[in-house]
C-alpha cells in the first residue's frame, strides 16, 4: 500500500534521511519510531509529497505521488486547520478540496469524533484533544485508503490518547492503512509493524516482538534499587554497559553479553537482588540510539 524506495533528503550538506526504504501492507498500522531529529517528520512529509525527496521514489496504492493525493490523508504534527473557521466549515473545506460534497459523510465524521456539539465553534477555540480529532476528521473527509499521522498523540492526555488509538484500530479493521510516527514506546507496542529510525537510517524493522529481539548481543537486568547518583556513575563506568535507566524504584540496565551477572551484582552491592528480564521497547529504543551514536 505504501512503497518507499531508498528515500534520501539533504538539508544543506546534512543528510537528514538516508536511503530509507519502507513497505507497508494494506490494513496495517505501521509505526515509525525514533528519537527527536531522527528524520521521522521529514520521512512522513516525503511520503506525502509535501517535501521533495532528493533520491528515491514513493508509490501509494500503486500510484506515483502526483496521482495518489486522493488515496491518502495526512495529519500534520501541528494543528494545521483554519482557526478562524468553525469545525464544520473546516471539515466541509477539506471535503470539497477532494470533491466530496456528501453532507451525510461529514455528519458521520462529526459524530464519530464527538465533534457534533462543537460543530459551530471556531477551530481555534477547541482544546488540544478536540483539535486533534478535527484534524483527523478532516484527513478522513474523502475516505482515503491510507492515513499518515505525524505524532498523532503528542501532548495529548492518556484518556484521549487511548480513544484515538481505539479509533486507529477501528480504521485499520475497516481496511485502512495507517502510518504513524511516534516516540512513545507504549504506542510503538500497539503497531503491527515498526521501523526504527535513528539519525536518518532504518536501524531495525519488523514486528514489535522481533524488534525487541533485535537487541542482539545484549542482556537486560533489573534490580529493586532507589535512585542513587553515585551508583549510576559507577554502573555507567563499567565497560560493556549500554544503558542505565531508573523507573521509580526499579533500576534497569542493558549490558553487552561480556558483562556477567556477578560483576553487576558486585557493583550493586548485596542489598538488592538482580534478575535478568525481557527487554522492552524502551530499552531497545535507547540501546539502538546509543549504538548509532557510538558508531
Amino acid at each position: 500500500m505504501i512503497d518507499a524506495d531508498h528515500l534520501s533528503k539533504f538539508f544543506g550538506s546534512h543528510k537528514a534521511v538516508d536511503e530509507v526504504s519502507l513497505h507497508v501492507d494494506s490494513g496495517q498500522i505501521f509505526g515509525l519510531l525514533g528519537p527527536n531529529a531522527a528524520g521521522k517528520t521529514t520521512t512522513i512529509r516525503m511520503l506525502c509529497g509535501i517535501i521533495e525527496c532528493d533520491e528515491g521514489q514513493v508509490r501509494i496504492n500503486g500510484k506515483p505521488l502526483n496521482r495518489s493525493q486522493a488515496d491518502f490523508g495526512y495529519v500534520a504534527q501541528y494543528f494545521g486547520q483554519y482557526e478562524e473557521l468553525t469545525v464544520l466549515e473546516n471539515l466541509d473545506f477539506y471535503a470539497r478540496m477532494y470533491g466530496v460534497t456528501d453532507k451525510a459523510r461529514l455528519t458521520d465524521l462529526l459524530e464519530r469524533y464527538e465533534l457534533m456539539p462543537y460543530r459551530d465553534r471556531f477551530a481555534g477555540n477547541l482544546s488540544g484533544g478536540y483539535k486533534r480529532r478535527l484534524a483527523l476528521a478532516c484527513a478522513l473527509a474523502h475516505d482515503p485508503v491510507v492515513l499518515f499521522l505525524d505524532e498523532p498523540t503528542a501532548g495529548i492526555d492518556p484518556v484521549t490518547r487511548k480513544l484515538l488509538w481505539d479509533d486507529f484500530y477501528r480504521l485499520s479493521t475497516e481496511g485502512k492503512t495507517l502510518f504513524v510516527t511516534t516516540h512513545y514506546m507504549e504506542e510503538a507496542q500497539r503497531c503491527h509493524r515498526l521501523a526504527f529510525l535513528s539519525a536518518g537510517r532504518v536501524v531495525a524493522e519488523g514486528t514489535p516482538d522481533s524488534i525487541r529481539r533485535a537487541m542482539g548481543d545484549a542482556r537486560v537486568y533489573a534490580a529493586a534499587v532507589a535512585y542513587e547518583p553515585e551508583l549510576h556513575e559507577r554502573l555507567l563506568a563499567m565497560p560493556g554497559m549500554m544503558l542505565v535507566n531508573q523507573f521509580g524504584d526499579e533500576l534497569r540496565m542493558v549490558v553487552e553479553t561480556s558483562v556477567s551477572q556477578q560483576a553487576l551484582q558486585d557493583v550493586l552491592g548485596g542489598q538488592s537482588s538482580l534478575t535478568e528480564v525481557e527487554p522492552n521497547l524502551e530499552d531497545v529504543f535507547i540501546a539502538l540510539t546509543q549504538q548509532r551514536q557510538a558508531a
Binding site: 512529509r45 509535501i50 493525493q69 495526512y74 500534520a76 501541528y78 494545521g80 486547520q81 477532494y98
Partner: peptide, 9 residues
C-alpha cells in the same frame, strides 16, 4: 502551518 495541510490535497 495551514499550508502543510493544504498541500497534501
Amino acid at each position: 502551518r495551514t499550508l502543510e495541510q493544504l498541500l497534501v490535497t
